[in-house]
Amino acid sequence: MSTTTGDPRPRVRTGPDGVAVLGWRCTGCGYPVAQQVLTCPLCREPVADSAFSPEGEVWASTCLRVRVPGHTPPYAVAYVVLDDGPRVLVRTPGDRPLPPASRARVTGTSETGDLVAVPAEEES
């Protein structure tokens, strides 16, 4: 399917302290979001730019092994709940999904714009 809208995927910032996942956090209740919002979806208070920890816990994962337009299988993906941050969808290396409850770290974005994460121990 085609789209004329902006890329909804989160972006990262790479600096001296490493990688941070960019997003927004509510100035009222602290709710973190990875997609741009005008106000907090929970309390309607303003949100402010935020940089989230790249580390988190794998929530669920799989590997797509079927052809999807614009993507070359196989590719593994996972939902990762960032520490004190939102849940984000990431690509992970290889074709073996990262196990839920394991630790993962976002290392950047792929050439196609997806967040990329690896097992946390590989980065430390």
């Binding site: 399917m1 909804p8 995927r9 590719y75 993906v77």
Partner: peptide, 13 residues
């Protein structure tokens, strides 16, 4: 596939 306006759609989920 989900709409590409969604993260899941853009990411090939």
């Amino acid at each position: 596939t989900p709409e590409e306006t969604d993260v899941e759609g853009r990411a090939g989920l």
